[in-house]
Nucleic acid binder design. Structure first.
Length: 284
DNA sequence: ATTCAGGTGCGAG
DNA sequence: CTCGCACCTGAA
């Protein structure tokens, strides 16, 4: 491909925003992050993102509408300076923010986010990525510049369990297919959680097979922007127990309620910083 | 060969 | 309602 003719865009960045930290802290599965940037798919295009001084360089996209959507997806419009100043009133967060600062909350597509976290349950990251890659290749539309779109719920819903298990979904195959069918038939309205209170939106998601407390909160936070959601995974559980409960074990429900009441609408950000800090500094 | 991995569903008390 | 246990499967 000729060098100078490639589509390219620039997104301005302000505050402590940290692109690679945001893309590699486990909110989304689709990004391949290396030393200089991240590669993935957005707006039906294969793109590459590179952090620059005060900006994010976007290769593979140049129309204003897509770039604006990308900025929103990446959380570039979030007031991280003020958010982190508020979080730093908490002594634990004040300490760990020195190494976790700049994490924004992505605004992911609800279906893709939901599917990804259903697959993530009791799984490990390499295998989650293997599964998602196979699902894309087998059920996703091939993209112009290479790569595959994330499969539509119709495609997953129509797949045989055998074909899904071929994507190493294991026992999650029937869960994912059932969720896909509820979405594609309209039994589940994925726009509804945008306009529902936390508890109701959460109940809706919990009704889905393969969706429990943790996955529901992940989707509420990473797709619906519900900042009051606080997903409790094994790492966050360890972090909260160690740093807020003197190492004493607590039920996940108790941890979630403690954090939601302590951090309010910023609970989701608190969770991200605790998660990053736990994964990078805690050894168990 | 065993063990582990970013939870969930299910039955029991 | 809270608790304990089994669970597909690739990778170490």
């Amino acid at each position: 491909m000729a060098g100078g003719t490639r589509r390219r865009g620039i997104l301005p960045v302000r505050g402590p925003y940290h692109l690679l930290r945001t893309l590699s802290c486990g909110q989304a599965f689709g990004w391949r992050v290396d030393g200089t940037g991240a590669a993935g798919v957005f707006a039906q295009r294969r793109i590459r993102l590179t952090p620059r001084r005060g900006a994010v360089e976007v290769d593979g996209l140049d129309d204003a509408a897509s770039l604006e959507r990308l900025a929103h997806y990446l959380g570039l419009d979030q007031p991280l300076r003020a958010i982190e100043r508020e979080l730093a009133r908490d002594a634990v967060l004040a300490r760990i923010l020195r190494t976790t600062s700049g994490v924004a909350i992505l605004r992911q597509d609800p279906w893709e986010c939901l599917a990804g976290f259903v697959i993530s349950a009791f799984n490990n990251i390499p295998k989650i990525e293997l599964t998602l890659d196979r699902l894309r290749r087998r059920f996703g539309a091939p993209l112009p510049g290479g790569g595959y779109a994330f499969p539509q719920p119709e495609a997953i819903g129509a797949a045989s369990e055998r074909a899904l298990r071929g994507c190493v979904l294991g026992y999650r195959a029937p869960y994912l297919r059932a969720v896909a069918r509820r979405v594609s038939t309209g039994t589940l309205d994925l726009r509804a959680p945008f306009s529902l209170p936390y508890d109701e939106a959460r109940r809706m998601l919990l009704d889905l097979p393969g969706v429990g407390d943790k996955v529901a909160d992940c989707v509420l936070l990473f797709a619906y922007g519900r900042g009051d959601a606080f997903p409790v995974d094994v790492w966050v559980k360890r972090a909260v127990e160690r740093w807020y409960f003197r190492g004493r074990a607590q039920a996940e429900r108790r941890i979630r309620e403690f954090a939601r009441s302590r951090f309010g609408s910023l609970a989701g950000y608190a969770q991200q910083h605790l998660f990053v800090a736990a994964r990078t500094t805690l050894r168990f």
